[in-house]
Design a protein around this nucleic acid. Structure first.
Length: 562
RNA sequence: AGGGGCGUGGUGCAACGGCAGCACACCGGCCUUUGGAGCCGUGGAUCUUGGUUCGAAUCCGAGCGCCCCUGCCA
């Protein structure tokens, strides 16, 4: 049972537990989950893992997953984020249908549950200041002391709590606390605050409330109200589970099972909302959707596909081990997805001109080149003009090449993709010794990039006709941070010291004319270079493309090794 | 130190008392009108230590290491 369930996806400890519940009948075979983001920032790839687990668990068992804004703290939340969150989850391919909820819409019911707790003597109004409360809480090793207000009568508590709601007391002056155990080794059980006074305008409930429930109280109740069966969350809430259970038991309400899993971490980036917000507000990046950000909006703009992210999460797996996933797996998943779907076009990122001396001046040949060379079944193609003067990549030529260099050098012959073989006959340099022009001769019999004499041509280069080339701004991205773990910082420094100053490299490329009509939102493979997608900054006169990920380059790797 | 959790190749995940496997990364080779893709292959792991057992990554004991918890944040 723990191997596979026919859909080819590995099981994990969560699904094993759901299986057990289904065997025991604890939830009558039902599976209802929820994704409960707090709308105080944009979603990132770490959230994608939680979304994946919540929605896939529901799908796997024929249940459903709710989307619920966990909006119990009006001082930190913004309505803009609510739209962004929904957009990003839909982009990932998940749908909550008509089950979009706010914890804030349960405020009245949650309030009534609090009253019930008071009535059974399980909660009390406490007048301790925040500072005093800290002192009364005790430490990790010493038990806390009971609040002097702990034994107030039920009627006094009822009265005081009602007056808290009515706005009679200033912010911070009183709280409602669960009466549990000040000596508990689990600090969460030492009479936790469940309601605080906040005279804050709430983006959903306006000024209806001046008291707001804490997460620990609102979350189990919201789950219970929605009939959630499995409340899946990250590891740091493990210590809160006893509290979650305590509220459900005290109130004798539907009792979901909370299950914790480890968060996703990624090498060469940061994942906390606080840090991402800092990158945005301090303008180290252009915004939440900067293509270097691990946010879903950033990854979408970068050219990531939902399918690639899904494959990545599936490969990465689910466990309770604190771990850091290698970003190279993410990149592999993107390449694997785009390899199959991206049309192939030609762009020269760092152009140098080649003059084909024996090619007729003024002649323009149109080559029909398939767009999907990876799929011979697909006959879509475009016309690519070829002329006497073309651009190739500067590093596709070496005057004194090392061994095993297959590209162009004096006297060697290479193939221009789907065009001709050319042989280098010489170079022109400027005074500083830089190559400004390469001369070559072509073989007319190799038209289409193939000769029938069995000649072996090792190197194959992409090219663009100089006269027809379109200038395109390319944004080449590297890792945002230059160390695998940016959170590992020297004493007195912050993660910002690890920012990679070269994470964005803007170049002007020469591309074939076809790209003038590029389809927005479509990833293209620039042959031998990488996958690119048009950026929203593009205008008709000034096309801009983002590099989603470079192709693997074994020659560059070989060179780097020396 | 009290409580909660977690330790399997470089990384991430499997193996649920019975030959430690998969993916990425790494390295080598084949192939190629993308030095891409694809194909084949090499190397490399059970935190330590006792015990139970015919047999332990798995069960038990002890230890070690790492993460989380002293918000009126979530």
């Amino acid at each position: 049972m723990s191997e596979e369930m026919g859909d080819g996806v590995r099981s994990n400890f969560i699904w094993d537990m759901v299986d057990e519940h289904n065997v025991s009948g604890r939830f009558g075979g039902k599976v209802v989950t929820r994704f409960p983001p707090e709308p105080n920032g944009q979603l990132h790839i770490g959230h994608a893992k939680a979304i994946y687990i919540d929605f896939e668990t529901a799908r796997r068992y024929g249940g459903h997953c709710n989307l619920r804004m966990d909006d119990t703290n009006p001082s930190k939340e913004e309505t803009d984020y609510i739209d962004a969150i929904q957009r990003d989850i839909h982009w990932l391919g998940y749908d909550w249908e008509n089950r979009f909820f706010y914890a804030s819409s349960y405020f009245e019911q949650i309030y009534q549950y609090a009253v019930q707790l008071i009535q059974k003597g399980a909660a009390y109004v406490c007048d301790l200041s925040p500072d005093e409360m800290r002192q009364f809480r005790g430490t990790l090793t010493e038990p806390g002391k009971e609040s002097p207000y702990r034994e107030r009568s039920i009627s006094e508590n009822l009265d005081l709590f009602q007056r808290m709601r009515a706005g009679e007391f200033p912010e911070g002056s009183r709280t409602l606390r669960a009466k549990i155990d000040m000596a508990s080794p689990n600090l969460n059980m030492r009479d936790p605050v469940i309601y605080r006074i906040m005279f804050a305008h709430h983006h959903q409930t306006g000024d209806d409330w001046c008291i707001y429930p804490m997460y620990d109280f609102a979350h189990p109740l919201s789950d219970s109200i929605e009939g959630i069966t499995h409340s899946l969350c990250s590891l740091e809430f493990e210590d809160h589970r006893p509290l979650y259970d305590w509220f459900c038991d005290q109130l004798e309400i539907h009792h979901p099972q909370q299950i914790e899993f480890s968060r996703l971490n990624l090498t060469y980036t940061v994942m906390s909302k606080r840090k991402l917000l800092k990158l945005v507000t301090e303008k180290h990046v252009s915004g939440w959707d900067d293509p270097r950000m691990p946010t879903l909006s950033g990854m979408r703009r970068r050219g990531y596909t939902p399918e690639a992210i899904h494959a990545f999460l599936e490969q990465n797996g689910i466990s309770k081990t604190n771990s850091v996933a290698d970003v190279s797996l993410l990149e592999y998943c993107l390449r694997a997805d785009l390899e199959n779907r991206a049309p192939r076009v030609m762009a020269v990122l760092d152009p140098v001109k080649v003059v084909i001396d024996n090619y007729p001046e003024g002649l323009v040949e149109e080559f029909e080149i398939p767009l999907y060379t990876q799929n011979p079944e697909c006959e879509d193609s475009r016309q690519v003009p070829f002329t006497r003067e073309i651009y190739i990549e500067r590093d596709d030529f070496m005057e004194n090449p090392p061994k095993k260099y297959f590209r162009l050098s004096p006297g060697t012959e290479v193939r221009l993709i789907k065009a001709y073989y050319i042989t280098c006959t010489g170079v022109v340099k400027d005074d500083a010794g830089n190559i400004i022009e390469i001369h070559a001769e072509y073989d007319p019999l190799s038209k289409g990039g193939m000769s029938d004499d069995g000649r072996r041509v090792k190197g194959t280069l992409h090219w663009v006709s100089a006269a027809h080339a379109v200038d395109v701004e390319l944004r080449l991205y590297d890792r945002l941070f230059n160390v695998p773990n940016p959170d590992d910082v020297p004493e007195g420094e912050t993660f910002l010291v690890h920012l990679n100053p070269d994470s964005l490299n803007v170049v002007t490329a020469k591309t074939e004319p076809y790209l003038q009509n590029a389809e927005p939102g479509l990833q293209y493979q620039f042959m031998r270079k990488g996958y690119f997608i048009q950026d929203p900054d593009s205008t008709n006169n000034h096309p801009v493309f983002n590099q989603a990920v470079a192709l693997r380059d074994s020659w560059a790797k070989q060179m780097a090794q020396g």
